[in-house]
């Protein structure tokens, strides 16, 4: 077999072996306008994104990643995507989806998608941080739902939808969304989120309005 054939696409290999836009030197020396950090070492993937912003565009993007080849490659590909043609507008950058990153990479094995493509979330967190630091009202935040389980990328909205579908048991929620099935660190958060919506949608007041 050709030794150059391997588990991932050529583009993953390129970005993994020679990743672009890595933060060099200490974080303090890089004057970041926004910083985003997602994932956890327990899950096996964690990434940090630092951005510089000029005229509502991302003028520079630096990153660091702990994780597998696809986690490293996907962050590198994201940085290339964001910085091409003089840098994306904050609006465009905020809307980047994991699918776009996967396309840049020329595809990923399906079991790698949820755990390793975290760059878009880290970038959104960095943009949120930029707005917050500068006291600017975040024009995007209401559009995105916070991630509750980072291992399986399950958002508060995903949990809300399942609760509405009738999933009110924690074990069933794990089955339905995959939340809290990997490192388990988000168990309390998932339960609290479920409780919030269960209380909202299934309280006695709604079912027994007259009593």
């Amino acid at each position: 077999m050709d030794k150059n054939q391997w588990a991932y696409s050529e583009n993953v290999k390129k970005h993994f072996m020679n990743p672009l836009n890595i933060l060099q030197g200490p974080e303090e020396d890089y004057k970041a306008d926004g910083k985003g950090m997602v994932g956890s070492p327990a899950c096996g993937d964690m990434m940090m994104v630092l951005i510089q912003v000029a005229k509502n565009r991302i003028s520079d993007f630096k990153w660091k990643t702990f994780g597998c080849a696809s986690a490293i490659a996907s962050t590198s590909a994201l940085s290339e995507l964001v910085l091409k043609e003089g840098g994306m507008s904050l609006d465009e950058a905020y809307k980047i989806t994991p699918e776009e990153i996967i396309k840049e990479l020329g595809g990923l094995p399906s079991n790698k998608i949820h755990c390793s493509v975290l760059g878009d979330k880290a970038l959104r967190a960095a943009i949120d941080d930029y707005y917050e630091k500068n006291g600017i009202t975040n024009p995007f935040q209401e559009k995105s739902s916070p991630v509750v389980c980072t291992c399986k990328n399950v958002t508060e909205e995903d949990i809300r939808m399942e609760v509405l579908e009738g999933v009110t048991d924690f074990e069933k929620m794990k089955e339905a969304t995959g939340a809290s099935t990997v490192c388990g660190q988000c168990e309390e958060d998932v339960k609290n989120t479920m409780k919030k919506y269960i209380d909202q949608y299934y309280s006695d007041d709604i079912y027994n309005p007259g009593e």
Partner: peptide
């Protein structure tokens, strides 16, 4: 410490 095994494995494989 601080790094992940699959990355190590694949870079060694290279």
């Amino acid at each position: 410490k601080y790094i992940e095994g699959e990355s190590i494995l694949l870079r060694l494989d290279m």
